[in-house]
Design a binder for these strands. Structure first.
Lengths: 336, 336
DNA sequence: CTGGTGACCGAAAACGATTTCGACAATGCG
DNA sequence: CGCATTGTCGAAATCGTTTTCGGTCACCAG
């Protein structure tokens, strides 16, 4: 207990060792003021020898920036927050900034607590990672620092929200299938109460209409986001619309289940039926036989973009509105 | 730009507003020293009215603790780091501590950079999350603060390493199958170069020997950690050891593939062949038909335990050695 | 040789807190 | 009433650092 650091090496120690005053040492280390190159080198060497850690905290006091940002997430175990976090962390570390991670578990009390804690730590900004589905009540009014909302929408239109372009992703998928001359395209996806599912369905209808094609099965099949539902839905679909020659699935789990069921029914993928998944969740998309063509959400890029916007906001120019991050078609053998 | 906080409200402001000295205000807010209840209330109200943020940074200067820890991870996208992180984050937030997250991507340069950064931020301790497979070179010598290694082993036996008890987990699985009176138990698992795979194989052999049972198929089947390998291995196994009535799989992906293949071959699960997975990765274990009995690694608990040890180390009592976190058998229908 | 000009450096003030310690009033006790 | 005790409070010291500002010194032109 007691003193944490065995011998808290202070700027004074460095100065003494370098044979200069504390002031000069400070200037040398922070590259400020006028310090002769030789002196500066001596100070730096002394600092290195003592493995001096400038007390960022005290310096932050005056300098104003802590070079840390708070990342608030509602549902960290969800699959989507992680790549976003990863991208953000990478982008931040490129700018020598740190991430303070907080998972609210969807609990408002925890969230407020975290916000207080992070503010007490003087974070320079917030990244709020949400659940694409629901709308986040805006925190911006309570914050003295900028915030960027990622993978969710804020209630305040003046906030900046980065979301995945679901319409664009679905469009990519369907246009890919149409380019492969498939005429009977079906859509198996997740629960209708997911905004992402609804947006993609809208795009599916739009693109098919543009090409005068029907939706095989008449309407999209809504179920869970699971392999099981994929298997079930595929059997349903083959029974009711045997002419189906392509299926666009709401995620890779469903797609993986669909492939299993189709294979079980003797339909060949992609020869008889082409399959496109969604999310590019490697563990499902690449492990499937055949590997799945799918839509990559560029989640890591989303995190990176969020950091870029935050950095912009920190230097004064803040954007607003909903920004859609384009998706990317990843072609594998399930449509080859 | 400029001043970040509109008007940095200082303790002096609070004191003036409350009509007390700065010293009294400090004591009132930190609940230290002798302060009359009425005065204290007045100070607190003033602080609240000014929405005063105690400058944790400056206070950390003297008090010594920043109440933040650094979490270093090699491979964050791996599936294992996340639950550990989650557990650690939860435990830390219960103690009003924050997590600074750093992902080294297995790069030594990044790692050193992060360590410097975190030390500059005066973190109170480190949690190093590794890859169970390899041995981490110990950082402890370079750190003026305690460190706990999780899900990996350190080169320094004086370090504290928390790992999952692979032998124990495998033992649970096999004993469960034996209790179900299965006589022909096989083992399909991942690459032999994984320590976890080897440790579990050893335990499988040991437990079977204790019960005078053979390993169906003669030896464990090593392959990838994938559904595909599960399917392939299951077909192999049925061909070479048709009497098999139980399979212990190295993870839930493999198990899920095994179930698919067995079902395809007309074997019923669990009636003909009981299946036990590993990891309790819900997305595979629970979505499987039938849902998988599996071994839960208690990863979140691992994170919590790590924090507990770190807290202990912070208050002076540091432990050492390798601590094995017990696993837990989760029974679902694949052995029902 | 003299005066001026920079470059370089250090003493000291500031910063926003905590903590020590002495002052003071109220209270208890004989 | 006198004295000791207790409870409150604030002046001032302290922390590690940055920043201001004045001093010193070398060098150079005249």
């Amino acid at each position: 207990m007691g003193r944490r650091r065995s011998e808290a090496v202070t700027l004074g120690d460095v100065a003494k060792r370098a044979g200069v005053s504390i002031a000069t040492a400070s200037k040398a280390i922070n590259d400020r003021g006028e310090v002769a190159a030789a002196t500066r080198a001596r100070v730096l060497r002394a600092a290195a020898e003592l493995s001096f850690q400038p007390n960022v905290l005290a310096q932050g006091l005056v300098a104003g920036r802590t070079r840390a940002i708070g990342l608030l997430t509602d549902e960290f175990d969800g699959r989507f927050a992680i790549p976003i976090l990863l991208g953000a962390e990478k982008a931040l570390s490129d700018q020598e900034m740190s991430v303070l991670l907080c998972d609210t578990r969807g609990d408002a009390i925890r969230r407020n607590h975290y916000i207080r804690t992070l503010l007490a730590r003087q974070v320079d900004g917030f990244i709020v990672v949400g659940d694409s589905n629901d709308v986040r009540t805006s925190l911006t009014a309570d914050l003295p620092v900028p915030a960027v909302y990622v993978y969710c929408r804020s209630t305040n239109p003046a906030d900046l929200c980065l979301v995945s372009d679901d319409e664009g992703g679905a469009r990519l998928a369907i246009e890919h299938l149409i380019a492969l001359r498939r005429k009977h395209i079906a859509h198996i996806t997740g629960p209708q109460h997911y905004r992402a599912a609804r947006d993609r369905v809208a795009a599916v209808h739009a693109v098919l209409a543009e090409h005068d094609l029907p939706l095989a099965g008449g309407q999209p099949l809504h179920g869970e986001w699971s392999q099981r539902w994929g298997r079930h839905a595929a059997r349903l679909l083959v029974a009711t619309a045997p002419e189906v020659d392509a299926i666009f699935c709401g995620n890779d789990q469903i797609a993986s289940g669909v492939v299993q069921a189709l294979t079980g029914l003797g339909r060949r993928v992609p020869d008889d039926v082409a399959i496109v998944g969604y999310d590019n969740w490697e563990i499902f998309a690449a492990d499937c036989t055949p590997p799945l063509t799918t839509i990559d959400l560029n989640l890591q890029q989303l995190g990176t973009t969020a950091v870029a916007h935050l950095a912009a906001a920190l230097s004064g120019s803040r954007a607003a509105g909903v920004v859609r991050q384009p998706c990317r078609l990843v072609v594998r053998e399930s449509t080859a």
